[in-house]
Amino acid sequence: MKKVLLIDGMALLFRSFFATSVYNRFMYTSNGIPTNAIQGFVKHMITSMETFEPTHVVCCWDMGSKTFRTEMFDDYKANRPAPPQELIPQFDLVKEVVEAFDIPNIGLAGFEADDCLGTLAELYREEAEVIILTGDQDVLQLIKPNIKVALLMKGYGNYEVLDENGFYEKKGLTPQQLIDLKAIMGDSSDNYPGVKGVGEKTATKLLMEYQTVDGILENLSALTKSQRQKFEDSLELLHLSRELATIKCDVPVSCELNDATITIDRNKVANKFDELEFKNLHGFIDKVC
C-alpha cells in the first residue's frame, strides 16, 4: 500500500531553529547566511523518511501571517513575536532544499500549513496510509481511519504516533472532539479565549458527558449555576473559538500523488548541500538514496 508522509514544514523549521539558537549556534555560510534551522530541518526530514519508509512525501508551509483566521479575529496569534532576524532568510532557502529532494512544497496565501495538511490528508487517505509529521498538538484533530499523526518528541527520530485508538486512550475523547475542547478552553498560544474560567479538566468532563459544544449548550440547565453562567457569558466567543480551532480540510490546494513519489537525485541534493556549505549532512543523503 502507498504510504504518504505529510510534513508540517513550519513545525520542523521552528523547532530546529530554537533547538540551536538558544546556544547562539546559527551556523553561518561564508556569505553570512544563517542555516541552523535548515540543517535541523533536513535531519528531521531524513530521519522521519528513514523511520516511516513512505512511498510519497509532501511538505506544507504557512504563507505569511495573514490568514482567514486573522480576518475573523484580529487578536488571533497577535501575541506571537516576530520571527527572529536569523530565521527570516531561512524561510525561502529551506523550500529550495526541499525542492532539491524533488519533494513538493505546498502552501496557500490566506491559509495555514495545517489547512493544507488537512486537505491533502483527506485527499490521499482513500488510496494511501497517511502519516502527518508535526510538533503541533492541534493537528491531532485530523486523525481518522488511514490518517495517523506523528508528534515530534525530544531529539531526532523520537515520535509519539497516534491513531484513533491511541488518541482516545490518551485524551478520553475522539480526535474530532479536540476541536470542541479547544473551543471551550481557548488557546493561549493562538491567543483566542474560549469560555472564560473553564479549563481543560472541566471541558473534557463536559464533552465526555455531552459529546459536543452543541450538546453542552442544549443541556445548560443540567450544568452547575457557575458553569451555566460562564457559557452564557461567552457564547459568541465560544462559537468564534470553535471556528478558529477547526482545521479546514477543503482549501483549494492539490498535489497529485504521483508528483509526491520519492525520487531523490543524489547529485542534485549534494550540490544544494555544497552550495549551503552543509559539510556534516552529506552522510544523511545515503540514508534515503
Rank of each mutant, 00 (worst) to 15 (best):
P175D: 05
K148F: 05
V213L: 08
Y192T: 00
K66Q: 07
D74S: 15
L244V: 00
C59A: 15
Q177F: 01
E218S: 03
M1Y: 14
F17H: 01
D187I: 07
M27E: 05
E129W: 14
R266S: 11
N191I: 12
T204D: 01
S16R: 03
T246F: 05
G40P: 03
V58A: 00
K148R: 12
M63K: 12
L178S: 06
P145V: 13
I106D: 01
P175S: 10
A11S: 15
H282L: 13
L223K: 03
R228L: 02
F52E: 06
M185S: 04
G64W: 02
E164V: 15
E129G: 07
K279W: 06
A37L: 01
I131N: 03
V4Q: 09
L140H: 00
P145I: 13
S21R: 12
L162Q: 11
M185I: 01
A270Q: 13
K279A: 14
K77R: 08
S188H: 03
G155V: 06
L151P: 05
Q137R: 09
T261P: 04
I7K: 04
F101D: 05
E160F: 08
L257I: 14
K225R: 09
V195H: 02
H56F: 07
A109M: 09
A78P: 00
S48W: 06
Y23R: 14
W61Q: 10
A260I: 11
G194H: 01
I264W: 10
R266F: 09
N271Y: 07
L123S: 12
C116Q: 01
M49F: 15
T29L: 10
V149H: 09
L238S: 07
A245K: 00
A82E: 11
K182L: 04
T70L: 15
D74E: 13
L244K: 05
L140E: 01
Y76T: 09
E53V: 10
Y124S: 13
R242L: 04
I46V: 14
